[in-house]
């Protein structure tokens, strides 16, 4: 069983699944050569796919393998199209080569470089990698303004907008500076924040100039 052949068949099944086809006949008709037909049987034995009635289904292992493959392929397309500005046919040919050779780390690096794209140039979904999930968490916990922090939660000051020098100075002299842990105590009628054992009353205008990270 040739690896490239397996990849080929996995891809075909994934793409058929994507468009809602699980029918064995349809999948078989897409698998053009007899050699690949045999591969499908071998894959069944290897536990990558299973046939239930008239349908071809991925096993867990098969789905992961196929997903990673599609991800590599479509990220390669994106890279070629967006960064290298290659022509359409060149893209397809190269992507088909790329998908077999690049490692997971390189894939994640490309994904990060491209800003975790959601779709390939043809508008098909790119399966998420580990890097995308991590990025999502980071975005959630990324810097927001203090007025958006929930009451009672400990947050860390990231930075204070420095367009108003005297305000910055005053906040700093109360001990509010980057890296300091603070807590919103109350939001109405004025904001009250707690820094160490000091409570300070502030207005929204001031509070929305303080950027924080959730812990």
């Amino acid at each position: 069983m040739q690896n490239r052949d397996v990849d080929e068949v996995l891809e075909i099944i994934w793409m058929q699944n994507e468009s809602g086809n699980r029918d064995l006949c349809v999948v078989e008709s897409e698998i053009k050569t007899q050699r690949l037909q045999n591969v499908l049987v071998e894959m069944q034995n290897a536990g990558l796919v299973k046939i239930e009635g008239a349908n071809v289904l991925f096993t867990k292992e098969g789905e992961e393998k196929a997903g990673a493959l599609i991800r590599r392929h479509r990220l390669a397309e994106r890279l070629l199209a967006d960064v290298l500005e290659a022509k359409d046919d060149a893209i397809e040919a190269s992507a088909c080569e790329f998908e077999h050779v690049i490692s997971e780390e390189v894939t994640d690096a490309i994904c990060t470089l491209l800003g975790h794209p959601k779709e390939c140039p043809h508008g098909l979904k790119i399966p998420e990698g580990k890097c995308c999930k991590k990025a999502k968490e980071v975005i959630d916990s990324l810097v927001t303004t203090l007025d958006k922090a929930p009451v009672g939660e400990n947050v860390t000051v990231a930075y204070i907008l420095a367009n108003n020098h005297s305000r910055l100075h005053k906040l700093m002299s109360f001990g509010i500076s980057p890296g300091v842990k603070i807590k919103i105590h109350q939001k109405y009628p004025a904001y009250i924040i707690q820094v160490d054992e000091t409570q300070i009353a502030l207005e929204k205008e001031v509070v929305s100039g303080i950027y924080i990270r959730k812990n």
Binding site: R167, K170, I192, Q199, I200, L202, E205, V206
Partner: peptide, 9 residues
Amino acid sequence: SDFIMEIPP
């Protein structure tokens, strides 16, 4: 001016 005021215990 800004309203920034310490609230003592």
